[in-house]
Amino acid sequence: MNIQIEETELLTLTPAISIAYDAVNDWICVTWTGNHSKESVMTFIKDIEAALRKENCRKILNLNANFLLSWQEAPIWAIKNWFPRLFILGCTSFAWVLSPQFTTGPIITEVFKTQTPFLQAMVFTDEETAAAWLSEN
């Protein structure tokens, strides 16, 4: 996906995460990098929520392609705990691009299909397909 730099506002940049507002597509783009624990995920979730409030947009493109290791329960925790909060903040669509290193992709996909009553959420293996879906929702 070609994000136009002049239309993207970088909101958070650390070695572990970047959070940007893509004005062309009107979504928050979150790029996770490296290893993450429950504690690091919780810290960065606050930054993502702040970005949603600041930009008043309704979509998140969540890129995990550079994840090395992660908090294994994160997807189920997100559905049960984080997605309801995102919905309250006005988020309606969430595209989750899996790391190719995750072997739980099919399980996460099934969980997303059956347990996301608060917002539309889909799991993808590539950024282009995720961005296309997010553009339509």
Rank of each mutant, 00 (worst) to 15 (best):
S135P: 08
W96R: 10
L11Y: 07
M122K: 15
S135L: 05
L134Y: 11
L86E: 09
K38I: 05
F67A: 09
L13C: 05
E6V: 11
C57I: 12
E136V: 06
D126E: 11
W133L: 04
L119D: 09
L13D: 14
K54M: 01
T92F: 02
A130Q: 12
L13V: 09
V111F: 11
R85W: 02
E127V: 13
F67L: 15
C57T: 15
T114D: 02
L89Y: 07
N56E: 12
T8F: 01
T129K: 12
F67N: 13
E7S: 14
I19W: 05
P75A: 03
W71L: 00
E128H: 11
A23S: 15
T8D: 08
W77F: 10
I79C: 00
V97A: 02
F102E: 07
A121F: 07
I48T: 10
L89C: 03
W133V: 07
Q120S: 14
K59L: 01
T14I: 08
I48V: 10
A23G: 06
M42D: 14
I3K: 10
F102I: 01
I48K: 08
T33W: 08
A20G: 02
S18M: 01
W133Y: 11
S93E: 10
S135N: 15
L98E: 07
A130T: 15
I107L: 01
N64V: 00
N25C: 09
S40D: 05
T14M: 04
P75L: 06
L10I: 12
K54Q: 05
Q72A: 13
P75C: 04
P106M: 02
C91A: 14
K113V: 03
Y21D: 02
F124H: 09
P106L: 09
N64R: 11
T33P: 07
K113A: 09
D47P: 02
L10N: 08
I5R: 10
I60V: 13
F118K: 12
H36W: 03
N66Q: 13
T129H: 08
W27F: 06
R58E: 13
S135Q: 14
P100K: 13
L69Q: 14
M122I: 06
M122N: 14
T116R: 12
A131S: 11
T33H: 13
F83G: 00
L11F: 01
V111C: 07
M122R: 14
G90E: 04
N35K: 15
S18V: 07
T43M: 03
I48G: 01
D26Q: 15
K38G: 07
Q4L: 13
W27Q: 11
W82V: 10
N66W: 06
E110T: 12
C91K: 10
